[in-house]
Design a protein around this nucleic acid. Sequence first.
DNA 1: CTGTTAGCGCCTTCAT
DNA 2: ATGAAGGCGCTAACAG
Lengths: 315, 315
Amino acid sequence: MRQRVLETAQRLGYRPHRYAQILAKGRSGIIGVLQSSGILQINIQRTHHVLRLIRENGFHPLVADSTGYPAETETACQSLIDARVEGVLLQNASIGPSQIRQFQNAEIPVVALSGGELSHVPQVRADVCQGMLDLTNHLLALGYRRMRLLGLAGADGSGDLAWPTAERIKGFRTALTNAGLQYEDTDVQFSQRPADSMVPYRSGFDGMQRILQASPLPEAVLCSNDDLAIGALCAAAGAGRRVPEDIAVTGFDNSPMSEFTMVPLTTVMHQTERMVRQAMEMLMDLMRGKEIPEADRLVKVPCQLVVRRSCGANQ
Amino acid sequence: MRQRVLETAQRLGYRPHRYAQILAKGRSGIIGVLQSSGILQINIQRTHHVLRLIRENGFHPLVADSTGYPAETETACQSLIDARVEGVLLQNASIGPSQIRQFQNAEIPVVALSGGELSHVPQVRADVCQGMLDLTNHLLALGYRRMRLLGLAGADGSGDLAWPTAERIKGFRTALTNAGLQYEDTDVQFSQRPADSMVPYRSGFDGMQRILQASPLPEAVLCSNDDLAIGALCAAAGAGRRVPEDIAVTGFDNSPMSEFTMVPLTTVMHQTERMVRQAMEMLMDLMRGKEIPEADRLVKVPCQLVVRRSCGANQ
DNA sequence: CTGTTAGCGCCTTCAT
DNA sequence: ATGAAGGCGCTAACAG
């Protein structure tokens, strides 16, 4: 009997009504992904992995993306809550305290992957501080001394930095200090956040143009990400400076493009898959009601140096 | 009374249960987006516009992405059907006849935006044939004669080309013919589709390397998209050839990166927003039960030439 | 204008 | 094993 019903259902191409199931069961089987929209390759790759892993865990992904404007973030979070997601993964996105509270009230666990600083939200991020430290040490070993870090200014222009930039600065300066070098505030050049998140290169271009006006010229410019570095390379070329002969340039993220830039970029690789996997595990644990001990709420996954030509090694 | 209820609901932060609404109303208010995953900037931008427009029309977007493998495409379509979407926008994705039938059976209208050839599905695409023709004419006017088109081979290696490539070849050859030039089959160099959709540059790199072995060297290489062109620029640099002095290179798509490449790329711009808007209108019409007259089922939106330095003009 | 009721399609529980 | 019933939260149709 049961057999016959199932066969007939099969034959008629019957598919259960997911929303009726959700209504009856009280759970949606959906995991939300809140993503900051943009074109940074590393983010696209990470989201790709996130979606795959969500499916592998037997859930349906639902992505909401926000450009980072508070109103839009609010809408995106609300849409996830309305969609009855059972958990949320912040992919390089940050949310405010009010949104965090909303998720808490709805008893929806949240885990952050990369992205800015977030209190009360377990987070997995690349150890960019260590990555930048390794990179700086590498440049020091190559003999560079006068270095400049090129990073993005804070979102609101208020001067407070996004975590990722702050961590990079920390790694950079620690390496300089360890080497017995002095650093000044001016060793960091801030570039304005791109007006259009689809064109991040312009920021690197502008920032590099300003750096190139300095005299003496820095010997090496460390960019906060590969996309900035691409803009920086372009600015250097426009100013008639050769990389790395006249000035070394490095990136960060090891995005697919970084191998095919004007000069192949020396950069720092994230262990993307490992990070995503770890974040998913945390989220699944939370969804099963497990508590995450305080000590494990911030996981830092090491980065690895990728040496190519733009730093002047490997010529 | 009604007032008081609404106020209280507001105060308690009540939100209606979307799935119960869907169940009761019989319509989901969701529009599905089937997208071929990948990192091509033009696609990311287009999807961005698509999502925005879906929301502006009062619907919720749901994206399903597929790497193009038949099994995955099948799953993606099924998930859209299960999600009770009221319409589907194919964004640079193609589906087989069996999937088309599934959508028809479920009475879900489908409109394609860009992407490959699709029978029985209304489509909006950039007029890449005209774009390539304009580009080729531009190069002819600059004096180039020995030109080579670098495109991607068909997905299955069976030799049949994806529409976009075929259209580019058509425009290219038409321009040559109009100029009274002969062309041979060897004027087109096919490069293998990237194994990893996240690294499209390699294909351009490999293809260009093969082109650079020819003697005499072509005077200009027209790449099927900007990402191929980036790989091609890299290969040219690696072989010690200057662009555009030794060999001109052009792209296609006017992706954000194209302005910041080794040499700013001469390329062809799509009218993305207009295309997306038109596709959405078609879909909304279909969802309202309107028929699309045969003549309007394939909309070609003109492309515009963007001249930068890689073609040897604007030096 | 307010109040009531019968589903929407499924799952769960309980009874046979 | 199979069958029957109640309810998930909402909407639409209808009654007062």
